[in-house]
Amino acid sequence: DEETLERIAKELKEKGWTLIVNGKLITDAREALKWLLEEEERR
């Protein structure tokens, strides 16, 4: 759910983690959240 996604995005940002999505590096939590939401919609 959205709360979980926001928590994940926040944790990613705090830890300075990066996500690699389709070979693209995502360092911004907002971008990561946007991607996660798009993935949820596809299901």
Rank of each mutant, 00 (worst) to 15 (best):
W35M: 07
K34I: 08
L37A: 06
K15E: 10
T4G: 03
I8A: 05
E41M: 11
T4P: 03
L5Y: 07
E14M: 02
L37V: 09
E11L: 15
E6P: 03
E41T: 09
L12W: 11
T18S: 10
R42L: 08
L33I: 06
I20P: 00
I20F: 07
E39F: 12
E3R: 10
E3M: 13
A29V: 14
E2P: 10
L33P: 00
A32G: 02
L37Q: 09
N22H: 02
A32T: 05
N22L: 14
G23W: 10
K10I: 06
D1V: 13
L5K: 03
K24W: 12
I8H: 02
W17Y: 08
R43Q: 09
R7G: 04
G16D: 07
L25I: 10
E3G: 12
K34D: 05
D1M: 15
L37G: 03
K24P: 02
E41R: 11
L36T: 00
W17S: 02
L25H: 04
L12F: 08
I26R: 00
D28G: 10
T27P: 02
I26P: 01
E6H: 11
I20K: 00
I20L: 07
R42W: 05
K34L: 11
N22F: 14
D28F: 14
E41W: 14
L33Q: 00
L36F: 08
W17I: 11
L36I: 05
D1S: 05
N22E: 10
K13N: 11
T4K: 07
R30F: 14
E14N: 06
E11P: 01
I26E: 00
G23F: 11
K24V: 13
K15S: 06
E38D: 07
N22S: 05
L36M: 04
T4M: 14
E14G: 03
L12N: 02
E41C: 14
A9L: 14
A9D: 03
T4E: 07
E31H: 03
E39W: 15
T27N: 07
R7C: 15
K13C: 15
N22W: 13
R42H: 05
E3A: 14
A29L: 13
R43T: 06
K10V: 06
A9G: 04
G23K: 01
W17C: 15
L5F: 09
K24H: 10
A29F: 14
E39T: 06
W35I: 07
K24Y: 09
L36A: 00
T18E: 12
K13E: 12
I20D: 02
L33S: 00
T4A: 09
A29N: 01
A9K: 09
I8Q: 01
V21F: 10
E41H: 08
I26M: 07
R7T: 04
W17P: 05
E41P: 05
E40I: 15
T27Y: 11
K24Q: 08
E31P: 00
I20W: 05
W17V: 07
W17M: 06
K10P: 01
L37I: 08
L12S: 03
T4H: 06
G23E: 06
E31T: 02
K24N: 05
R7H: 06
D1N: 10
E40C: 15
K15N: 11
R42K: 08
V21G: 01
E38V: 05
I8M: 06
E2D: 09
D1W: 15
I26K: 00
K15G: 15
I8R: 13
L25G: 00
G23V: 12
E11K: 13
L19M: 07
E38M: 11
D1T: 12
T4L: 14
L25D: 01
K13L: 15
K10G: 03
W17F: 13
I20G: 00
N22Y: 14
E11S: 10
E6F: 05
E31L: 07
E3L: 13
N22C: 15
L12T: 03
T18L: 15
R30E: 09
T27M: 08
E39S: 04
L37N: 03
V21E: 01
E14R: 03
E38G: 05
L36D: 00
E2I: 10
I20R: 00
L36V: 03
A29T: 05
L5D: 02
W17E: 02
L12V: 08
W17L: 11
E31Q: 08
R42E: 01
R43M: 08
L37H: 03
E2N: 07
E14D: 13
I20Q: 01
A9I: 14
G16E: 06
A9T: 05
R30P: 02
W35L: 08
I8G: 01
A29G: 03
E6A: 12
K10E: 07
L5T: 02
E11M: 12
L12P: 01
L5M: 06
E6W: 08
I8N: 01
A29K: 02
E38R: 05
E39L: 13
T18C: 15
L36G: 00
R7K: 09
E38N: 04
R42S: 07
L12H: 03
L37K: 07
E11Q: 12
D28I: 14
L36R: 00
L36W: 08
A32K: 03
K34M: 08
R42T: 04
N22Q: 03
E41Y: 08
G23C: 15
E6L: 09
E41N: 10
T4Y: 10
R42C: 13
A29Y: 12
E6I: 12
R7A: 08
L33G: 00
K24A: 11
I20S: 01
K34P: 00
R43S: 10
R43A: 09
E2Y: 13
R42M: 06
E39Y: 14
R30Q: 06
E3I: 14
R7E: 04
A32N: 00
R43F: 10
E40M: 12
L25Y: 06
K24C: 13
E40P: 02
K13P: 03
R30A: 12
L5N: 03
T18D: 12
E14H: 02
I26L: 08
A9V: 14
E6T: 11
T27A: 08
I26W: 10
T18K: 04
A32P: 00
L25E: 08
T18M: 12
